[in-house]
Computed example of a mutant assay.
Amino acid sequence: MPNTKGRGAKKRAAGSGKRPARKSVRRSSSDAKADGDNKEEFDVEAIVGDMEYRGVHYFEVKWRNFDESENSWHPKADLGCPGLLHQYMQTRVKNTADLTRFYDLLQSAEGFTISVVNTVDSVECPENFTYINESVYSEDVPRPCTPMFWCECTNGCSSDCECAERGNYDEKGLLKDEGCARIIECGTHCKCDESCANRVVQRGSNARFEIRRFAHKGWGVVAKQQLVKGAFVAEYVGEVISYDEAERRGLENRGLTYLFDLDKEFTGDFSDFSIDAKSHGNISHFFNHSCDPNMSAYAVYVEHRDPRLHRLALFASRDIAAGEELTFDYSPPVAEATGLKADPCHCGSDKCRKFMYY
């Protein structure tokens, strides 16, 4: 795939659940009936995924009366539902690559288990990539840390709080205004605690992901649960680098760059800084492009209000079904007029522009 992760506007292409209590695996109703069990309620509804790691075969369990966000993983030895296991094994497509190294790479990932599937080729793992949970700053990039203000709210932020006055989130933590220029969250000096409704991106994502290999696009990510419009999906993290360094890397890795310019609120000719997720990144490193994406990027401020160094957060721009690929637009239409190099686009959407520009 053409990995030109969303460059900024101006010179570059525009950039413009709680976990359930630990459950023991019980038999499905079909398995129980085979044993003459008269119980009417059973925990396991289905087995929906598997992975092999260090000689242990793990299976993803869908719990009865819980949605996909509550799925959990268990070794085969702990499963007590042979009927469902047999049914799953009859239909599963086995991986064509050994993914042990990939799972080693994901051991530092925050949040829920990330599963990996490759049924199309022999590629095992990205080379020279380190999984990180927050961006790292190059030595020549400043790290502002003094907030312009902070709130005194002690029981969540009220509507007249300076931090929450824009009202970016509703009571469920969903983004309310798709047209908002910025998202300002409560910072480290604010008096409210982590449960404040105005602390969404900084709490991290609760979304469940599967990294999947695609025939014409390479690695991509599918949602393992339904995500509603406005839900925070992931932060785009990587190395925060200067404009000059971004230019150098862009030329060096032409057509294979993960640079995302921090220009969401920048009005000059060029943005001062970029995020490069090529060698250091999180789940967002694997998100593919689509000309009809289901995610949009927003500038988010937590530690400071410097518009040159905002954080980048990806939110669901519409309802996303479980099993649907997660995508954002790397190369919006404005790029077509810049005379940049074009590569064929393989997003497959009905609105495909046929080419990607970088």
Rank of each mutant, 00 (worst) to 15 (best):
D319N: 14
V123H: 12
T113W: 10
S122Q: 14
V120S: 02
R143T: 15
D104K: 08
S138D: 15
D35A: 15
G8M: 03
S158M: 06
H57F: 02
G281R: 03
C352M: 07
V56R: 06
S284V: 04
A321V: 13
Y301S: 04
V117M: 11
V221G: 09
R308N: 11
D177M: 09
V136R: 03
S115I: 02
D261C: 01
G323Q: 03
G49Y: 10
F214W: 07
A9P: 12
Y243S: 13
F102K: 09
K172A: 10
I211N: 01
L262C: 06
D272A: 11
R54T: 09
K5F: 13
D67A: 05
R7C: 13
R64A: 13
S159L: 09
G348F: 03
S205P: 00
V93C: 07
G220R: 01
E124P: 02
Y137D: 09
K39E: 13
G17E: 07
M148T: 13
L312S: 09
F328G: 00
I132L: 05
H86N: 11
D35C: 10
A14T: 13
C153E: 08
D292T: 02
Y301R: 01
S158Y: 05
F232Y: 15
S24T: 13
Y103L: 04
R19C: 10
L259G: 07
V201K: 07
G6C: 10
